[in-house]
Design a protein around this nucleic acid. Sequence first.
DNA 1: ATCCTATTCTAAAGAATGATAGAATGAGTG
DNA 2: CACTCATTCTATCATTCTTTAGAATAGGAT
Lengths: 222, 222
Amino acid sequence: MTGRSPKSELYDHFSRVGKALASPARLEMLDLLSQGEKTVEQLAGQARLGIKNASAHLRTLREARLVEARKDPPYVLYRVADDAVLRVVRELQALARERLAEVEQITRTYFEAPSDLEPIDVHQLLERLEEGAVTVLDVRPRDEYTAGHIPGAVSMPIEELERRLAEIPPGRPVVAYCRGPFCVFASEAVDTLQKYGFAAQRMKSGVPEWRLAGRAVATGER
Amino acid sequence: MTGRSPKSELYDHFSRVGKALASPARLEMLDLLSQGEKTVEQLAGQARLGIKNASAHLRTLREARLVEARKDPPYVLYRVADDAVLRVVRELQALARERLAEVEQITRTYFEAPSDLEPIDVHQLLERLEEGAVTVLDVRPRDEYTAGHIPGAVSMPIEELERRLAEIPPGRPVVAYCRGPFCVFASEAVDTLQKYGFAAQRMKSGVPEWRLAGRAVATGER
DNA sequence: ATCCTATTCTAAAGAATGATAGAATGAGTG
DNA sequence: CACTCATTCTATCATTCTTTAGAATAGGAT
């Protein structure tokens, strides 16, 4: 596996990136880190891993230069090193969805609510935002909203949605988004909203796709 | 590693693709297969692997649905299953080049001739083809030219170049291309051509990038 | 200084992957 | 119907990856 010719050395390096993407745990952590920087503890919790295990995977990711760390005592905050990482992960997921029938089936069964007839994409959301007649809800945990959200969106973590329905202007269409195409929060939100009579729709993608589409991302509390 | 929740099942499937991309041998074979379908024997020879080993890697790639096989007795011909595979491999290589300094350095040292000041890209080649005043040389092995080449290009495998120089119109700029950004044939060709007084340039990419850019690909002998 | 906390480092067992040899398959061909 | 050839399947061993436990580090806080 050690490179003798320049060519095999080159492919050895390419495979460093491939190896970093060869574990479900690391792919999930990359998805989580796409939402903004996180501590080891947050990552371990959200990906349901032990802390030591999460730390080991993070080391692998860091050695492949896909993530970077920053100290903010007493924490260490990890983040995705480059938008190119997001592009690769997104292409990999798109490929898996296209080529592996199981992925498409799981997606349909678990990540798209039955009522969820027509999720909209980044461009459609943009159009409707320009028309001005839509309420956009960010149903991710609040710290992910703070780290970066679609301008104009309201932070409404999924656990708070049901008791904060009064804050949503009635008679106005609502769009909910979460982390991306494989995040359940948005479909759950759409289900709840429709149950209470709102014209609700899910956005297929999340903030990372919004960013990659070249749109500005807002940070901070509100 | 077996999926319990839908989410972990999903990431297990994503990692199937990642695992397939986690070996230098498989990444090299994907690059070779991007040039057109090949037999196990051709692949093993071009990637310097044993036949059985190559076959085992091909099985892995096939199980991840990244390549497909077709029988043409007595041979089995392999091909890349989908353009999405090319996109992922390209993004992965771009990421490695951007994030891993070693890759950039190897590329500069071995894959770009010193005289090779300004390699052109797909769009620039297209412009110059439309102007009409450029000779395009395909310096890959002849069977790869046959499997698919840039319309108007002449097949001139690198081993034949030096004794076929008389066929190249003098006083006219020449562009040489091979398999892609990490293929040495084109730089070697540019060196040789410049030595004999031609105004020669290398194209950075190859037929796969041309295809992905939505351009038509010509097949057959000439 | 010493304590405290988050995190990494070290080490080791278990699981998965890689390379290769030998047997088996399977589709023409004589 | 056997023969031939390319290729795959099966089995093996060495290597690498994953996970987890225990020790060590680093940086504030007391």
